[in-house]
Design a protein around this nucleic acid. Structure first.
Length: 579
RNA sequence: GAUCCCGUAGCUCAACUGGAUAGAGCAUCUGCCUUCUAAGCAGAGGGUUACAGGUUCAAGUCCUGUCGGGAUCGCCA
């Protein structure tokens, strides 16, 4: 139930009857920044100005009466500023959304239909199985998971995918490194870890586990497969505790073995996009060992890339890029024409060629998006946190999760736009104060629950279904209506955040919701008539409880998307960590 | 040299994919706890949105250029 879409439909009908050629998609309905402007504002007159050949305000004059007649909920339509039409709606229209929210519950409130059940594949994390996940991976995991949740809620058929990069050079390096550690564990003195190997001490665990079930380490494949399985298992455990669960794990090695890469190459060759050629060296910064070399190239410049890209290494094996193309092509053939691949900001240079490749190999049928997730600066009380020795160079996801808990991580990591670097301060994100958005939002939810407990003592237990039937017209104070209207924007927020792939908007909405509720709570402290529970007026109390539950449901719905469990109470100061 | 990300209040960041007077928190200043709901509340100050042009009814948002920070640049993924 999206009240903004309903009004927009009415407006579109009116506009279409007057101007059949009008660009309806550009005509929007939004809550005005300034609440005194009304409940909703539309830019229709300004958009139509061109088609109509009249100034915006003249078009607006023409529209207002018709708009009022178009939808029984609209009570007022005023022209303002450069040609905005400000609309006022009956309070009942908003109260109806509140009733709806209570019946829908946190799980379903805000569900949208814009996705039209379109199949979307969201690929994220996809870390090499060569070591533990880092906080950088954590951010990508949380962002990707939230995007997937968002799109699911907006009505897309979402698949969450982890693409395991278990082929190529890095796993060979891993194998070498593990064999070293096995020899070490077997009593051999291996000295310093050579430069080309992974130094992380976590590989000792791999070696130890290996020796428990194997006697020799002559066969590289056996060691490699064991190490990958072991490390992938660790990764899955970490992700599981973080609350990230993929629907599908795809192995790069399997893609290779299945012949999919060869098929993708054939497809591109058939399209005339593969050729033998020599690349120019990059200008300004020529690598020392540069020498012109003929190689197998993909003509990605035909699809917006800057240079053509190599598909084969000098040893004849395919490049990771070729393998990725095969992977994308595979997803396309599985019916996914909307592909989202969350990658780290260091992959920025990869975006153009990947998009080009998908466009080329699916002949424009599929579209690939590659949101970039920036790095995380971990601090503690403003001081940079030292990196974990055990992991080699990085702070691990595990370090952070043990320190602050997964709920805090998920929320805080979504309080910044993905493209921005994120500062994550251990002290600040765990303190119980208004400065900590995680706490602030949870506290609002807990307060709602606390009110319900008191209500139970005063009036007996009530369900959300009961409350949805309460006389909501008793909610007439401006403060109450403001919150109801905020609740009514939730479905719209979901829609907007999903189309933009920007889950941080959900975190901000949750904070707005919490702030509004805390505000009302505080007013009740000064003004007794604004309290939720009025002992001698049960009907009013029930209406207000409906509002309280509406807030709780909406916050819980937002936290669901983020992947955080809403808390019913915040007890001692250690509870936050346990959450 | 090229490409991509970024530049908003002293600090950390928003701004509904082009909308009205650019908003929050921190910090600063001014008022508030013998009270149910102060792990706080109410209010104030703080801006040439890096800079210069352009597009249009309208630009923090789109285009061009400049400056500054970051990332990447043939057989790592």
């Amino acid at each position: 139930m999206n009240i903004f879409n309903e009004v927009r439909e009415s407006i579109h009908k009116v506009v279409h009857s007057l101007y059949p050629d009008a660009p309806l998609a550009k005509i929007t309905v939004e809550p005005p920044r300034d609440a005194t402007h009304g409940d909703m504002a539309t830019n229709a007159a300004m958009i139509l100005s061109k088609v109509a050949g009249k100034p915006p305000r003249a078009v607006a004059e023409e529209l207002v009466e018709k708009l009022k007649a178009s939808n029984p909920n609209i009570t007022k339509a005023d022209i303002a500023g450069p040609g905005f039409i400000n609309l006022a709606l009956k309070p009942e229209a908003f109260r109806a959304v509140l009733g709806h929210a209570l019946l829908a519950g946190a799980k379903n409130f805000g569900d949208g239909t814009i996705g039209k059940s379109e199949k979307v594949n969201v690929e994220y994390v996809s870390a090499n199985p060569t070591g533990p996940l880092t906080v950088g991976h954590a951010r990508g995991a949380i962002f990707g998971d939230a995007v997937a949740n968002l799109m699911l809620k907006a009505g897309y058929a979402v698949q969450k995918e982890y693409y395991i990069n278990d082929a190529g050079k890095q796993v060979e390096v891993l194998t070498d490194s593990v064999i070293l550690r096995i020899r070490e564990a077997a009593g051999e003195n291996i000295g310093e870890i050579p430069a080309g190997c992974y130094p992380g001490e976590y590989l000792k665990d791999v070696a130890k586990a290996y020796l428990e079930s194997h006697k020799t380490w002559d066969d590289r494949k056996t060691v490699r497969d064991f190490a990958i399985r072991f490390l992938m298992n660790e990764i899955k455990i970490d992700l599981g505790e973080l609350g990230v669960k993929h629907d599908l794990f795809v192995s790069e090695a399997e893609i290779l073995n299945s012949g999919a890469v060869a098929k993708a190459m054939d497809q591109l060759t058939g399209l005339g996009l593969i050729y033998q050629g020599v690349l120019e060296p990059p200008k300004g910064k020529t690598p020392d060992d540069w020498e012109p070399r003929e190689q197998t190239l993909f003509k990605s410049t035909d699809f917006g890339d800057d240079v053509d890209r190599p598909m084969k290494k000098s040893d004849g094996s395919t490049t990771y890029f070729a393998n990725d193309i095969a992977h994308y092509f595979h997803m396309h053939k599985m019916g996914y024409d909307r592909l989202i691949n969350v990658v780290g900001a260091d992959h920025g240079g990869y975006v153009k060629r990947a998009k080009a490749a998908v466009k080329a190999i699916t002949q424009g049928k599929a579209e690939l998006d590659l949101p970039l997730v920036s790095i995380v600066h971990v601090t503690d009380n403003g001081q940079p946190v030292r990196m974990s020795k055990r992991a080699g160079t990085f702070i691990t996801l595990r370090d952070m999760m043990d320190r602050v808990g997964s709920g805090v991580m998920r929320f805080i990591m979504l309080t910044r736009e993905a493209g921005q670097t994120l500062e994550f301060d251990y002290t600040r994100v765990t303190e119980q104060s208004k400065d900590n958005p995680y706490f602030y939002v949870q506290y609002a939810h807990a307060r709602c629950c606390s009110v319900m407990k008191h209500a139970k003592e005063m009036f007996g237990a009530v369900t959300d279904t009961d409350l949805a039937k309460a006389d909501l017209s008793r909610l007439e104070r401006p403060e109450e209506m403001a919150i109801i209207k905020l609740i009514a924007t939730w479905p719209r927020v979901v829609e907007q955040a999903a189309t933009a792939s920007e889950p941080h908007r959900i975190a901000y909405f949750a904070q707005d919701m919490a702030a509004a509720f805390h505000g009302l709570w505080n007013k009740g402290r000064d003004d007794g008539t604004l309290r939720f529970l009025i002992e001698n007026d049960k009907q009013l109390s029930l209406a207000r409880l409906a509002l309280v539950r509406g807030v709780a449901v909406t916050i819980a719905a937002a936290l669901n998307v983020i992947g955080v469990e809403p808390l019913d109470e915040l007890r001692s100061d250690t509870e936050l960590e346990a959450a």
